[in-house]
Design a protein around this nucleic acid. Structure first.
Lengths: 326, 326
DNA sequence: CTGAAAGCGCTTACAG
DNA sequence: CTGAAAGCGCTTACAG
């Protein structure tokens, strides 16, 4: 290649890496030679020197089924891919639902095939977080990683405030027996949205009643089951705040089956404003998570982390979207 | 590391690569030193020599939406991940729906970050196939790549025979006005299943009628639209063979909306036996694609290809699964 | 601005 | 079985 262009390997390398300290003539000669020969750098050799791979992993520590069932992942993945695309960086998707997959993917990551990881959906005390941290791999999580002793950067929507807003909305529209279906209590969304619910109930002067709180796992099926439980425990409820749109769909299913009209008999509020919110019957009143901004911030802070900056925390505001279900 | 174990770098390397031509004592010393220091090989350096990365890409040249909408991809991805897991090889998932993503992912692949690619869902004349071939990257496709001049290995279900079996089943159960909703005609599933349908109609002595053939794009929405078109063109149809379960769900949606009973008024046969077949109302009679075997064969032939073998073609038999819709 | 040289961390004949 | 040496294809100070 160097011979082809009539310059030294050093000069070729300089052209490849930004063209600084290179005369226009030399640059032209190299560019022409590259075009002529179809030369492409050997990334292994480059990586061996630089220690970089110019790619980023999107690591999902969640069973694969959840990835396909929950439209939030779709939205998040697309937005992250886009944000990276703007910088011409490929996104390597890794699904590590089982211990075995985790081990294999960690090995790949630790081997330096990616420069950093966008960590999605970690439950409390997720060992992957610690492993990645120990290995010195730059990480930024989606949602606050619970139960970690190490400080790790993350980007999240303001879960608690979103929950508050939804419950205030339910209260403002006349509801007084407001139940909730929470996410898993080892996830930030599970914990924070429940906290927002409780705070707002208290602020509105409504009594706290543990019978009105049921925990789901973010799946549609768990939403339906939770609704059945609620109906049995407290047939007089007039509203349910559900911690995810997908679970809210399940709640809607169960309510319809039980002959309850939404919103006439029972109002249903979701969370996420995922595609599920629009495809449900009736369309869901929900709390919008700003996925585009979340993704953009995840990518921005990860790149900053890779460049050597300290871990950062970014909390983004949510927004109430009123449709027909509440 | 070599110093730590009191041996040469060459011996360490030999231990790492299978332990051949190494004395038990030397091996033990190296193993101990590895455990002690937590040493892990630098893959970039190794790859620079070997030209291998010990990982495989699952490349989907399809818009991301389709990936999430169609449960077939979920099943295929899981089975491929599992088949690779048995050999301890990580699966790198890449979604290249847009030209931009294709370019970026190709660059990554050509840079040698993966040893080969499992190519999924390529339409006729897909430029990715040619690019990969030119770059000398081992590839095995899922389904026969159409419109390619180069010979490329692939694994597929026997689409044509599956279609024949379904149409025979419809005919055997008394249907005489059998319509079909095909997949895109630039995909093997679109072309072959239509061919099987036509052959069987002829074999059964049923007249060919182009009004009974509508083309969809494998999405649920396109199935619904196709059904509306069919009902308008030929209100007397008594059966529809749909080239995918997802489209069949759409057909079911439209039929229900039009007041048609399934299977009483119109029988509906699907293709895939994907999760959609069970969740539809009524459950679908369909043609099972042996995804586990397809995946296993894709992985097996890709690894063989990486090891230097010639491209292979594997055609697997399908199976009629009778449920309630036909 | 540019070339010669060192070096990144491995693997692999080669000679013992 | 094992060590010394060459070499994989780059990047990056270092001198000019």
């Amino acid at each position: 290649m160097a011979r082809e262009a009539g310059v030294s390997r050093g000069t070729v390398s300089r052209v490849l890496n930004g063209g600084h300290y290179v005369s226009p003539a030399a640059k032209a000669a190299v560019d022409a030679a590259i075009r002529r020969t179809g030369y492409v750098v050997n990334r292994h050799a480059r990586s061996l020197i630089t220690g970089k791979s110019d790619s980023v992993a999107f690591l999902l520590t969640e069973p694969q089924e959840r990835f396909f069932e929950d439209p939030n992942f779709n939205v998040l993945l697309r937005a992250c891919t886009q944000a990276l695309a703007d910088r011409d960086i490929p996104l390597i998707l890794m699904i590590a639902g089982t211990e075995d997959e985790r081990r294999r993917n960690l090995r790949y990551i630790e081997a330096g095939h990616v420069d950093g990881v966008l960590l999605v959906s970690s439950h409390s005390g997720d060992p992957v977080v610690a492993r990645l941290h120990e290995a010195g791999v730059p990480v930024v999580a989606c949602g606050k990683p619970l139960g970690q002793t190490t400080r790790i950067g993350y980007v999240a929507a303001d879960d608690r405030d979103g929950a508050r807003e939804m419950v205030r909305h339910l209260h403002a529209t006349g509801r007084r027996r407001i139940a909730t279906v929470t996410g898993p209590l080892d996830t930030p969304g599970g914990v924070e949205r429940l906290a927002g619910y409780r705070e707002t109930l208290a602020a509105c002067g409504l009594p706290a009643d543990d019978a009105l709180v049921v925990t789901g796992d973010y799946s549609r099926a768990s939403g339906a089951e939770a609704a059945r439980t609620l109906l049995e425990r407290a047939p007089d409820i007039d509203a349910v705040f559900v911690a995810s749109d997908l679970m809210a769909q399940g709640v809607l299913d169960a309510l319809a089956r039980a002959g309850k009209r939404v919103p006439e008999d029972i109002a249903v509020g979701g969370f996420d404003d995922s595609p599920a919110a629009l495809s449900s019957q009736p369309p869901l009143t929900t709390i919008r998570q700003p996925w585009d901004r979340i993704s953009a911030e995840m990518v921005r802070t990860l790149l900053a982390r890779i460049a050597g900056e300290d871990p950062a925390t970014v909390i983004l505001p949510t927004e109430l979207v009123v449709r027909e279900s509440a």
